[in-house]
Amino acid sequence: MHKLIVLYPHPADPEAFASYYEGTHLPLAAKLPGMLAWRYTLDVHAAAGDSPYFAIFEADFPDARTLGAALESPEGQAVSADVPNYAPPGTIVLDYEVKGG
């Protein structure tokens, strides 16, 4: 399995971020071809102190090739093009192969 994670720092206007993210961006992301599952939270806490992140998005793909094809697809291009409309500076996108028991 391959995972895509997006870490969003605290936005200037949390309510506007949440409204746009849930109403516009997530419906676009949900259309990524080959995606097995996705989840997100707007309620991130740190083990100690304040969390540097406001929101986290996770998506599961069967493998890196499927993720790459999804990001290059028209749906993936629409998702990427939408990011500047809401994402705060410092947003981090990670992907990795999942290993473990």
Rank of each mutant, 00 (worst) to 15 (best):
I5W: 06
I5T: 15
I5D: 05
V6K: 02
V6L: 09
V6A: 09
L7D: 04
L7M: 13
Y8I: 12
H10F: 12
P11Y: 11
A12N: 15
A12E: 13
D13L: 10
D13W: 07
D13T: 04
P14Q: 07
E15W: 11
A16C: 06
A16H: 10
A18L: 09
A18W: 13
A18D: 15
Y20P: 00
Y20W: 10
Y21W: 12
Y21D: 01
E22K: 14
E22V: 14
E22L: 14
G23S: 11
T24P: 03
H25G: 02
H25I: 09
P27R: 11
L28P: 01
L28Q: 07
L28T: 03
A29S: 11
A29T: 09
A29R: 13
A30P: 02
A30I: 07
K31M: 10
L32N: 01
L32W: 04
P33R: 01
P33L: 03
G34V: 00
G34M: 04
M35T: 00
M35E: 01
L36N: 03
A37M: 07
A37K: 07
A37Y: 09
W38D: 00
W38T: 00
W38I: 00
W38Y: 15
R39S: 15
R39F: 12
Y40I: 09
Y40S: 02
T41C: 08
T41E: 12
L42M: 13
L42S: 04
L42W: 07
D43Y: 14
D43I: 10
D43E: 14
H45P: 05
A46L: 13
A46F: 10
A47L: 11
A47I: 15
A48G: 08
G49Y: 10
G49D: 12
G49H: 10
G49A: 06
G49P: 11
D50S: 14
D50T: 15
D50F: 10
S51W: 06
S51M: 08
P52R: 04
Y53I: 06
F54I: 05
F54A: 05
F54T: 04
F54M: 03
F54H: 08
A55H: 08
I56F: 11
A59T: 02
A59C: 06
D60L: 06
F61A: 00
F61M: 00
P62K: 00
P62W: 05
D63W: 09
D63K: 02
D63A: 07
A64F: 03
R65K: 10
R65H: 09
R65Q: 08
T66E: 05
T66M: 04
T66H: 05
L67F: 12
G68C: 06
A69D: 15
A69P: 01
L71P: 01
L71I: 15
L71V: 15
